[in-house]
């Protein structure tokens, strides 16, 4: 069962990263920001799974899948922390618009 195009997978993950970046750069809502980050993250996981499936040796393939599993865990953690930030931001400023959290400015 072959015929899955390499260029297609790479293109897909590149496209998803680009979409995620686009979201990160343009959205001002913190929840949307998180979603955009998740999209970009999924692109990375997809890459791991894809290259694991076509790895030269079983060991390397398993390494790729294991990395994918760990990454899923990281992504879930990151969402949890991100949402905690959303709640804290909402409580502190009454908004979840990141453009209004400008304390970093000099």
């Amino acid at each position: 069962m072959t015929g899955l195009p390499e260029a297609g997978f790479v293109g897909l993950s590149a496209a998803l990263v680009a979409v995620g970046l686009f979201g990160i750069l343009t959205r001002r809502n913190f929840v949307l920001l998180l979603i955009a980050i998740e999209i970009a993250m999924n692109a990375a996981i997809l890459n791991f799974v894809y290259f694991a499936a076509f790895a030269p040796t079983p060991g390397e393939g398993l390494a790729g899948q294991a990395a994918a599993v760990v990454l899923v865990g990281f992504a879930a953690t990151e969402v949890a922390v991100g949402l905690a930030i959303v709640l804290a931001l909402n409580r502190a400023k009454g908004t979840i618009n990141v453009a209004e959290a400008t304390e970093l400015r000099l």
């Binding site: 990160i24 343009t26 920001l33 959290a101 400008t102 970093l104 400015r105 000099l106």
Partner: peptide, 17 residues
Amino acid sequence: LRRIQSGVVSDYASYLV
């Protein structure tokens, strides 16, 4: 350059990208 320091996270992310 000072104006770059908007404090908005998205802007910083843009510079990163």
